[in-house]
Amino acid sequence: MKIKLKVNGENKVFDVKADEYLLDTLRKNNYVSVRRGCDNTSCGVCTVLINGNPAASCSYLSCKADGKEITTVEGIPEEAAKIAGFFGREGADQCGFCNPSMALTVYAMKKELVNPTDDDIRSYLVGNLCRCSGYQGQHRAIKAYLEVE
């Protein structure tokens, strides 16, 4: 069936199968920053914003997304660049595979939470796994980003 999505501000029409997931639809259409990690909601690397809320696109049916606004990291280039600056300073980028999803989730958190504590940050991002960094560098970077912004 045909679905209408607004991806990064652009209106798009995609022809999708009934059991197709948003991750596949997006990757097929060259939004390659959206990554496949675990395929069962456990890792967070497929995160996109759906109407502004971070969601696991690997487990969100494309049909269900019909009419919604989707943001991938390509849609927030300025914020992603800023966040990247903080990650870089802390040696937290590492393999980079999950980093677009980190940028999106951090960006959504900044909009959703006011003055989050260390625990709030950990809770908000707990589903965004990272196997490289040990999380400490990310945590320092995120705090620095929130302080400056």
Partner: peptide, 12 residues
Amino acid sequence: AEKIMGVTVRNI
């Protein structure tokens, strides 16, 4: 509720 997986799942 807040102990169930991550925000990206709880939003779905």
